[in-house]
Structures are given as structure tokens and as C-alpha cells.
Amino acid sequence: MRKGTPEMNKALKYSIKVRVNGREIITKVDSRLLLSSFLRENLELTGVHVGCDSSNCGACTVLIDGDSVKSCTVFAVQCDGSEITTIEGLSTNGNLHPLQTAFREKHGLQCGFCTPGMIIQGSWLLANKKAETEDQIREGISGNLCRCTGYQNIVDAIMYARDMVSEREDADGE
């Protein structure tokens, strides 16, 4: 955990109650602690990558109450009462999320730095039916940078996951 300066230690502490990846957490945070720092340093969820710390790169994308947001641009205290999902919370009972499978199958990652953000944003696109076309997916991940420039495989992976999910839904429906 970050020690902080003496001034920071004197900062007001606020109680928050959040549910992170299904786990209820009640704790106290400084008013200006970023959500990205809270997740990485207080909860050790280091899958939340911090690339730019200025809302540009999207590597720190998480879901707050189902909405994808850049966690470097939200204060932890603002999440009181919210449900947060990070990359660590996407798999269920040890089974990879379809997007995680798809990124592996379609080589949707190279160095892997942007991957958690890409997958979380991809999950938001799938959940909100915003991955119907390739153009929609490209627009949908426009806030996520991949410095390996591996966009084509990322787009392919999201399309692959979308088709996997819809096939499953069709099978469930029958």
C-alpha cells in the first residue's frame, strides 16, 4: 500500500462499501484516491493496468454498475454503493469468459498490456449489443490503445466471441 506524504495522511478518510468482482468490501479511502489505485494497490487487482493515468489509453477500463469507464478518471469514493468488475472477475467457476477464450484463439494480444482494458470494453460492447458490425467494434474500442498495433486480431477476437455467445444463446433457446 502507498504510504503517501504526511499531508495525504491527514486527508479526510471516507467509508465506502463496494462490491468488487462479487466480493463485498467495506473500507476507508482518502477522498482523492483514484479507483485505479484503489483496485491495484489496496485490493491488489493488478490486472487493472495503468498506461497513461489521463483517460487516453483505456488499459484501466473496468465496469462500474455495468458501464465501462476508465478507472484512472474516477475517485474510489465516488464508487460507494457500486458494483465493480475488473478483468479478474470475468471468468466464472474457473471457466474463461468467451472474450478471454477468443483473445487466446485469435491471437488478440501481443505484449498484453492493453488486453485487460480491451477485454472489459469488449464485454461491455457485447452486453450492450454494440458489436454487431466490424465498424461498430472499431468505434467501440476507439478509447483503447494497443501500442503493438494489433488491432485487427483484437477486432477479430471480439467478433469471434460475439458469434460464440450468440451460438450459445441460440442453443440455450432451443
Partner: peptide, 9 residues
């Protein structure tokens, strides 16, 4: 405006 995450927030 911005990108989808920015517009969500």
C-alpha cells in the same frame, strides 16, 4: 464526444 468510456461517465 471522446470515446465510449468517456461518454459513459
Amino acid at each position: 464526444i471522446g470515446d465510449p468510456q468517456v461518454r459513459n461517465r
